[in-house]
């Protein structure tokens, strides 16, 4: 092992998938580089097991062993990951990840499987204020995934289809579980998949823009979480924000879905150095 390299792993345990990143940090902690990442859907398997496999996956790709990792940090619902060293609250991790991906952002929208969150941050990624969706999964990422499944459309095609829409079907607050039959009804009424998806994207976007307004977001906004990969959603949220005259520009990054894991890995490195320093002082 090279002494001047510091490796940390960040694991973001979501309700639908587990995101793991392996990062390399330079000595003074100012530079962090992502080496490998892994996205594993849980698919009803034991979360702990999936997390372990995901962890092993990134290590084996880097030809590293668990002993080479200075700090394993979790975020999200990481309580069940028993090989972690520390855990970071999800907003803390997401904001740090967002700043890492684009240092200009001052607000973050986290579109996760179950919750939508919006928070304003400063240049050091400190969370200033936040808003969250309530106790209903309508309009969540899981909701969108269910709809795609009911329509028989692979998740990766959803964005492009939604952007083709010419007259979006207006939907508002339908139950994430009952949506299946609602969608069947729309299909049998002859509404195209792209109009259904766009309508759903707009309704989801409206909800999240409402949250953003609640944290007085302005300027650059980073979308994190699974929804960041959905170009149809990104277009819809910009459309809604523009129509409401909000001065925001939405950013995504190909690694947006890993923002939480990246943030956790960076905080892990930070904490590791702090610990190492205090150990030195004690000696």
């Amino acid at each position: 092992m090279w002494l001047d390299r510091l490796y940390t792993v960040g694991i973001d345990v979501g309700s639908n998938s587990i995101k793991t990143v392996l990062m390399e940090h330079d000595d003074n902690g100012s530079e962090a580089k992502l080496l490998f990442s892994d996205l594993s859907k849980i698919r009803k398997r034991e979360t702990k097991l999936v997390a372990e496999q995901s962890f092993e996956q990134v290590l084996s790709r880097a030809s590293l062993t668990p002993d080479d990792i200075a700090y394993v940090a979790t975020t999200g619902e990481g309580d069940m990951v028993d090989f972690r060293r520390g855990h970071f609250y999800s907003m803390t991790a997401h904001s740090r990840g967002a700043i890492h991906l684009n240092s200009a952002v001052r607000s973050v929208v986290d579109g996760g499987a179950m919750h939508g969150k919006a928070f304003a941050i400063d240049e050091r990624s400190k969370v200033l204020t936040y808003k969250m969706t309530s106790q209903c999964a309508s309009g969540s990422g899981q909701f969108l995934e269910n709809i795609a499944r009911y329509l028989g459309i692979p998740l990766e095609d959803v964005g492009a289809l939604s952007k083709e829409s010419t007259s979006p079907e207006m939907v508002s607050g339908i139950c994430a579980v009952l949506a299946e039959t609602d969608v069947i009804n729309m299909v049998s009424r002859g509404i195209s998949a792209s109009d259904i998806l766009k309508g759903i994207h707009l309704s989801m976007a409206r909800r999240l823009v409402g949250l953003l307004r609640g944290v007085s977001a302005e300027g650059e906004v980073m979308i994190t979480g699974g929804l960041a990969n959905d170009t149809g959603f990104v277009a819809a949220i910009q459309e809604i924000a523009d129509s409401e005259n909000m001065n925001v520009r939405f950013n995504t990054h190909e690694l947006s879905i890993f923002a939480g894991a990246i943030g956790a890995a960076i905080w892990g490195a930070f904490r590791h150095k702090k610990l190492a320093q205090s150990e030195l002082q004690h000696q």
Partner: peptide, 17 residues
């Protein structure tokens, strides 16, 4: 504790764990 079905699903997983 959850009312929403999807949230109850997550609560189940958490309680099992």
């Amino acid at each position: 504790n959850s009312t929403c079905t999807v949230f109850a699903g997550a609560e189940i997983r958490q309680r099992l764990s």
